[in-house]
Amino acid sequence: MATTTDTVLEVCDLRTHFHTDDGLVKAVDGVSFSVRRGETLGLVGESGSGKSVACLSALRLVPTPPAAHPSGVIRFAGKDLLTLPERDLERLRGNRLAMIFQDPLTALNPYLSVGRQLTEVLEVHEGATPAAARRAAIEMLTRVGIPAAGQRIDQYPHQFSGGMRQRVMIAMALLCGPEVLFADEPTTALDVTIQAQILDLIGELQASLGTAVVLVTHDLGVVAGTADRVAVMYAGRIVEEGTTAEVFANPLHPYTQGLLASMPRIDTPSRQRLAAIPGLPPDLGQLPSGCPFHPRCQQAGDRCRQAYPEVVIASPTHRAACWETEAVS
């Protein structure tokens, strides 16, 4: 992908490997993507495909050990996040690069008031006085839709509902107006009715702050509604990338095709069984040779068993890693 002037974050050949008792696990193995200002990139894949680890690695939040230090280059604001000294990285985290997590109940500290957890961000990054930080925190809580924020700021996370907690998380992440927001399955732990509200909220704030969002999800429905572009991950690599319209209309990779086919649709008879991708996600410690998807792929040929596929470029924005793609598209 060509680096344009408004690209805020560029990840090149990111590799995060874990040393476990069962051997080396390549959770993220050569992932590259970039996001532009105000854009939403959907990072999609099954559990264990490496999408969360890729985001955590970008902020160097994967505990080492068991993980080895991630390799590759992550360009942000003219610097490489992977080689930046810890102190400099701390200045960016929560400030210009923020993250929200899947389960807001466990992601918020149960022993500290919501207010404390918000104000410390402003105190650390902007040197705000306690009073100013509190005012700004109440303002942000109001902005994310928490009623009576002036009173609720002194309450503790367990006194909030799931959706309200995720709003608190979002407020916390956006306090300093970050340029990039990593949202790691932000709606997975929430009720379906709340999911849409939270996604809308992220979208609104993103539009007003110009924040780029990397939205990690396993839910293609979420991606279809919110993402500008999609990157599909399988076994630690991106297997297909394109604009949301391109990927949904013309999926190149058999895995993406399988994912789309397994989505329930409103226009198919409800008695009809959903198509499932046969087989199981691979054990990352013992990946098959060649294309890691070949044991589950109905189109797999000899080449697929021997070497990892070369990238097929379908359009300037649409590409996939598959030997059989030409035959498909």
Binding site: L56, L59, L61, R87, E90, R91, L92, R93, G94, N95, A98, M99, F101, A107, L108, N109, E120, V121, V124, H125, M169, M172
Partner: peptide, 9 residues
């Protein structure tokens, strides 16, 4: 992890 993601020392 959240505390670290917030950039706390």
């Amino acid at each position: 992890r959240t505390a670290r993601a917030k950039g706390l020392a």
